[in-house]
Structures are given as structure tokens and as C-alpha cells.
Design a protein around this nucleic acid. Structure first.
Lengths: 331, 331
DNA sequence: TCAAGCTTTCAAAGCGCTTTGGAAATTGTT
DNA sequence: AACAATTTCCAAAGCGCTTTGAAAGCTTGA
């Protein structure tokens, strides 16, 4: 039997009879034969690989903990279409040159952009390279067309803040992510809009920006609690920071919910899943794993049909009521 | 100029004069030329790729949160040697068939085995496949030779438990990972040995095994605190569970350290780095990122020299004194 | 000046697949 | 039975590199 026939039988071409195909498949199964990836990729001119470039902040060597769950979602989708996932964790300053290298040596068929900034250079650069990509998040200051999957950050933080105001809180802190991250900016906007619409004026000192680690949640919460007029409620961008906040409250002998209300964004991380009947935290919740799945899907569609118009998928975070929000205590 | 010369110039062969090499390098830089990965891999017969298979527990869709930091360490090392990292997150039941598939289609030059169990089939299977690999951790019930990088789990949990006993604790709980994980078993052994050497007898109910999530830390701590003779100290395998434990203490109006002492294993995760002058938790600390670096290093060495004898690298976790351990309160 | 001995360059043969274009086998039609 | 139409198969070319083996260019010594 010729190489051609085998190749066609395995790749599901119609030119081969069903009988022959069965024979081939059986023989392949018997000898555990799988076409050599390297040869196949050279012959087809496709890499069958999606690149994920995750940046490790130089300063704190921090790896964004949501990326594991995001990738878990994406990986499942890639597997379905027999794509491989190429992962690289790099210091942020070499981010773009890594994309360029991947493109030059044609190592990937498409890439996912993680953690876009308000001013995101990579979007225009990838468009220039003509590399299919999808952004997890958006970038406000760009006029480029691009694929993205994002949650409605502005609206969900508006709602969260609004909820606190309706409960009677008038001094509300925001413990946010790094300021030049697009998601952080949008969340801050939603928070500010709620304050404004309710005619609440607050000094800038009620807002902190930092990497979303537990120690930073703790530190920033302490800073806010030490203000002359401490907030009675906090909104935060990460359940990991929320844990730090709880530690700070603890140290001040304050009880979560009763003394200080907290609403957190909840990415539904697998190791922090707040699944109790009454969740610990009132939260704006949106599964980052689902976002991974959707991003992968969108990217594979774009690769399959390069003429496709870029698409944006906006997920709406649910506002989940938990036990961390109560009306403020009378003074 | 011929293809041969260019190839040799770029790959640093001595057969090409320094002058020619410079010309080639400049031209390559100018046109941003990089040899096509696919063609190169076919020609050389190497994949220049390391596979990481991370299993997602079917039951809870849990992704082990330490893997992000581990991979950050490994990725840096791969980049140095121009290797790519192929990542796949799969349900545990297909774990081995994924390795087999990678081998059959020669997609990778080596793999890293994450989260080995006490009875780990994959080690023998990979040896049979003749696939270079390194295990992050060890497997107690195997006589195979293999490369591994592990921390001294037994000893560090022995020391942790011993410390609590020396402080005066006599009722000590263990909130551990899933029982068939090798690391969990070794830690339990260290804990048991300390109890035994100090003639402390305790019912099995003082030990819990579960996936290391925050909610599980909370739940298991509650269960132990509700025992007729509740423990005055806890040892736990994960800083994420420690957060759940703190929440449980909080709910019982118990103060960490003062009322209940806690020692946790601390993988030095980037988003939970307990870097205060006096750390929050007394901990057995060992950087999982460093383990990633060392694993990558060992694997690349093995690939470069296939005749190499398998090696084991045993890291010693430091016992870091924090503020979560105090003598028990007099009743 | 010429042969011997190096250094530098190159043409051609793979690597293990997919794909093309055409030949052989089978089926259907008259 | 003969031919056309269709189905099934195959030989050969090519994917873009690396590597081999040999040729060309350059030095050196007699």
C-alpha cells in the first residue's frame, strides 16, 4: 500500500475507500503509528501550535495566578482541534520580540495576548506581523481591529459599588490591580461612576493600585483602614487580594461583613472556588476558564478563516450575593 | 552565497570564516530571518520541545496552583537552551495516553511529570517508551531508576511537628493533600514520626486529606475544631489551605497563633509570598520556582547525554519562624 | 612555479510527511 | 464486448532546512 493511500486514509480524505481506510487505521493502531509531527508540519506548512506569552513582572517575579485556569480552558479547546499549546513566561520587556521571533521562525499559527494594558503596543505590532491573535481583555487606547474576549469590567464594578451605596455605605475604598492594566482602569471607572452618580466625593487616597498578591491586599487594606475617615466598605479586583484584606481586618479586630463590607471580583479560580450556598464574598463573578475556552475558540476560527472580521466577545460578570456585605454599622 | 554556508554561519560551525559569518549574521538581522522551525526540526530530527502534562482533576476541575510558578522557573531555563515548552492540561485518566501520543508522533524530546502518586505508573511507562523525563517529586512504590527533584517532605514535616510539640502542643492536626499523592504521604509520615517519638497518641480523625483549595482548608479546619478535644495546633500542606484555616479560626473567634498555632508548607508562590520581616506563617518553605529551574536543568542534561545515570535532587525546605506559632493557651 | 595541505565554499541528498497529476481498477452503459 | 465514467490507488515532487562529500580557493615550502 502506498504512502499516499495511508496519508489519505489517516487524514480522512474521501479518495480512499472505507474498506482500505479501516485496514490502514487498524494497522496504525496496532503499531501505534502516528504521523511524525515535524514532517507533517513541514509538509503542510502549518505549525498546529498556539503560542501563549505570559509576562512575569520583572519587579516582583509575579506570575498572574489566573493564567493557570485560563489556560486550562484554552487547552481543552486546542486538544479538540489537535493544536498544541506553546507556552513561554518572559520578563515583560522582551514580550514583543518573542512574538516577532515566533513569527520569523513560524513556530506558531496564532497567539493569545494576556493582560493588555490601557496603551497596548502589541496589538498594532501583531496586526503588522499579520499574525492571528486574540486578546484576553481589551485595550482602550487603540483604534486597531482585533479579536478579544473580556468581561464587562466597568459595568460590574459600577454595580458592585452601587450595591454598597444602596446598603448605606458612603466611604468606599477600591483595592485595584496595577493602574496601567486595562481591566484595572475600567474597573476604576465603574467604581468612580457609581460614586459620582450618587454624589459621593472622595479623595484619591481611597484607591490603591498594585499587583494582585495577598500581601498587597493586606498592605493596601491596612493603609485604607488607617485613613482618618476609614472606609466602611471595600471593592477589590481579586479574590487573592480579598484574602489579604480579610487578614488586615482580622488584625484590626474587624469582622468581614459586619464591620467592613467587601466585594471582590471572583475569577472562579479552581483553588478558590467560593461555592458555599451563601458564598463567603459578595462578588462580581466570571469564570476565567470559560474565557480561556472562548478565546481559544475565537482564535481557531480566525486561523481557519483568515478573512474573518475581528470579533469581540463581552462576558457579563454576575453579581453574586455573599455574606461579606451588610449595611454599615452605626457609629 | 550557498545555503550550506548560511546554515553553518548561523549555527556556529567552525567551517565558516569569521568574515563570512558576520556578513550572514548582518543580512539575517536585517531581514529578520530566522530558520523555519518546522524545517529545522525535521532536518535535525529533534523537536527542541519539552512537554509538560498537568493533570486537571476530573472531580473538581482543579488545577494545581503551584504549577504556574514551577513552569515559570522551568521556562526560563528552556529559553536559555532554545527549547520550547509544550503544555497540556488533561483529565487525569488520559495522562499516560498523552505521553504515548507525544512519543509516537515525536512531538517532544522529553517530559516533566507533575504530581506523582505513591504508586506511580507513569514512571515505568516512560522508561519503557525510552522517553527522557524528570519527575517533580518522587514515587515511593517504584524500583525504577528515574530523574527527580523533590523537597525533603518527611523531614520538614517532622521538624514542623516537633517544633509544635516543643512549644507544648500535644494535640496537633494535619490538614494534608490528597492521600495518594506521594508528597502528602511523606508529609504524613514525618508528622506521625514526630508524634510517635514524643509518645503522643492521636486518633486518625486529626488528619484530613483533600485537594488543597481554600474551601477545603476551611472545611477541614472546622471539622478538626469541632472534635471533642480540638487540636491546639495544625500543620498543613499548602498556604492556600492555610488561608482557609485562618477563615475557620476567624469564624470560631479564635486568633491565629494565640489560640491555635499553624505551620504551613510554603511553596513561595509569587502571589502569596510571605515576605514580611516576621512572616505571617511559620512555614516549611521551599521555592517551587527553583524546583522548576532545577528540573528543567536536569532534563536538558539528560537529553544532551542519554547515557547519563538518573539523578535525584533533594531540596531541603527551610523552617521559617513566623507569628502563627505560640505555646498553647492554658485551659 | 608547482604540488601539497589547508581553508572556505557549494551542489545534492536527505528528513518523513502531504499533495499533485496521472495511471489502474472497477463499475455502469450501450 | 467495448467504451466512458467513476472510483481507487500510486510515483514523484516538494516543504525549508541540515549534513555530507567533494570542489574550489588560498597558503606555504621546495
Amino acid at each position: 500500500m502506498s504512502q499516499t493511500t495511508v496519508s489519505r486514509a489517516l487524514n480522512g480524505f474521501p479518495e480512499v475507500s472505507e474498506k482500505t481506510r479501516q485496514v490502514v487505521l487498524e494497522a496504525a493502531a496496532k503499531h501505534n503509528y502516528k504521523p511524525n509531527t515535524r514532517a507533517r508540519r513541514l509538509a503542510t506548512g502549518k505549525s498546529m501550535t498556539i503560542g501563549h506569552l505570559v509576562c512575569v513582572s520583572k519587579e516582583h517575579e509575579m506570575v498572574n495566578p489566573i493564567f493557570a485556569d485560563f489556560i486550562a480552558g484554552a487547552s481543552a479547546r486546542y486538544a479538540q482541534s489537535r493544536y498544541d499549546l506553546l507556552l513561554s513566561l518572559v520578563p515583560d520587556e522582551v514580550e514583543f520580540s518573542s512574538y516577532k521571533e515566533w513569527a520569523a521562525r513560524s513556530a506558531v499559527d496564532g497567539v493569545v495576548v494576556h493582560a493588555p494594558r490601557v496603551d497596548e503596543q502589541r496589538i498594532a505590532q501583531l496586526n503588522d506581523l499579520n499574525m492571528p491573535f486574540v486578546v484576553h481583555g481589551r485595550s482602550s487606547n487603540t483604534f486597531e481591529k482585533y479579536n478579544w474576549v473580556d468581561v464587562n469590567n466597568e459595568r460590574s464594578f459600577f454595580r458592585a459599588t452601587q450595591l454598597l451605596i444602596e446598603l448605606g455605605h458612603t466611604t468606599i475604598g477600591l483595592i485595584n490591580g496595577v493602574a496601567d492594566m486595562d481591566f484595572a482602569m475600567r474597573r476604576a471607572q465603574g467604581y468612580q461612576r457609581a460614586l459620582k452618580e450618587n454624589n459621593i466625593e472622595q479623595a484619591d487616597s481611597y484607591v490603591t493600585h498594585s499587583e494582585m498578591t495577598e500581601p498587597n491586599g493586606y498592605k493596601n487594606a491596612l493603609a485604607l483602614l488607617d485613613l482618618p475617615d476609614p472606609p466602611t466598605a471595600l471593592v477589590t479586583s481579586s479574590i487573592i487580594m480579598a484574602n489579604g484584606i480579610r487578614r488586615a481586618l482580622d488584625e484590626h479586630e474587624l469582622k468581614l461583613g459586619r464591620d467592613v463590607s467587601v466585594i471582590t471580583h471572583d475569577d472562579d479560580l479552581s483553588y478558590f472556588r467560593d461555592a458555599a450556598a451563601v458564598p463567603v464574598y459578595t462578588a462580581t463573578r466570571s469564570s476565567v476558564r470559560e474565557a480561556g475556552r472562548l478565546s481559544a475558540d475565537l482564535l481557531l476560527k480566525t486561523i481557519a478563516d483568515p478573512g474573518r472580521d475581528p470579533e469581540g466577545i463581552l462576558l457579563d460578570a454576575e453579581l453574586i450575593l455573599g455574606s461579606s456585605t451588610k449595611p454599615p454599622r452605626p457609629r
